[in-house]
Design a binder for these strands. Structure first.
Lengths: 188, 188
DNA sequence: CAGATACTATACCGAGCGGTATACTCTGCG
DNA sequence: CGCAGAGTATACCGCTCGGTATAGTATCTG
């Protein structure tokens, strides 16, 4: 494994465990077995390091999410796919998932929040588009696509973080339950 | 307003906006119009300042929560009371609610998380006790009181933070919807 | 081989942090 | 008054932080 990758993975684990603001660059470099100029050679700054971590993990996930939320006149199917995308992402990258999770709920004016915000927006886009298209087939959903997006993501994050904390599987049963509960919230 | 209170309120607004780790003691003192030794006179340390904020806001809420979750063989009523306790707490202290929220989801080894953890545990106790007692009346709930507590708190936080972000009211309609959706998740 | 380019280490910088030593002022009380 | 103690300000300390100047080495390319 090359230095660049080692630094990225070391930084990820430190940021996830202690937080971005509380982790020093020297700490990361020592643990990765390189010196500071090496890290600053690959990533221009501490912020640039975090940006590389976010983009490296979020970019591939976003492609999967776009595919999962492509509306085909079957909202139930779509919801299941979107939830599956999130849950398997959380399960495959538990450390990164924990990191982005804490960043999403960080104080609004913190650097952490500022850094993750564009990625949160990019996640909302395809999901909100899916709900907007579904409005045509379900009249009672009209004008609520933004609210549905928020609620869905909130529920997914609640389930995922709970499962991660208890080291429980995010399996088909849980997906069925979450989807069922969410649909019930929409149509009742 | 005396200096102690001014410092507490100033610190609360800074911690909520920028985060505990990212806020300097000097920043707080300047904004509060006092000097550092004054702050260190009232609170032994930066950590002690945060502890005073947490205890001053959480303590009264905990009393209300204990009362709301006293089980009287009517789980629906209890859920409504608990949700109402949280929602009105969030609405009356939006800044503090935002702060404790970000601390709950902070990295596990951060000082923020460490500081809020005992208060989170103290909140779970009465709620989990409520579910444990309800098991006697609802056989299909057996052995799930911890899971229910987590899910309920996750759902409440999702609703509350969403409402706070959109500056929407946490009114009776929302409480009904949330309670209904949660009960449906339990009994289906 | 020669030169450029990518990579790495030592040693350092200015700034800001949490916290404090010292000393002064104000207020209440005998 | 005279004294005690709470409260406040100035000025400072030691430390760690993010970031860099300098210089050296390895590797690739003509």
């Amino acid at each position: 494994m090359n230095n660049r990758t080692t630094i990225l993975e070391t930084a990820l684990s430190f940021f996830a465990a202690f937080g971005y603001e509380a982790t020093g660059t020297l700490e990361i470099c020592d643990a990765a077995g390189v010196s500071k100029p090496t890290m600053y050679h690959y990533f221009k700054s501490k912020r640039g390091l975090m940006e590389a971590i976010l983009s490296g993990n979020f970019q591939p996930f976003l492609e999967r999410l776009k595919e999962a939320s492509r509306y085909q006149h079957d909202l139930t199917l779509n919801l299941e796919r979107v939830m599956r995308a999130y849950f398997s992402f959380a399960q495959e990258n538990p450390v990164f998932y924990r990191l982005q999770f804490s960043m999403q709920y960080a104080p609004l004016k913190s650097e952490s929040y500022e850094l993750v915000l564009p990625w949160v927006k990019r996640q909302r886009e395809p999901i909100q588009a899916m709900f907007a298209q579904a409005e045509a087939d379900h009249g009672n959903m009209r004008g609520r696509s933004s609210g549905y997006t928020t609620t869905l993501l909130g529920m997914i994050n609640a389930y995922a973080s709970d499962a991660l904390a208890r080291e429980r599987e995010l399996d088909d049963e849980l997906i069925y339950q979450a989807r069922h509960q969410f649909m019930h919230g929409i149509f009742s």
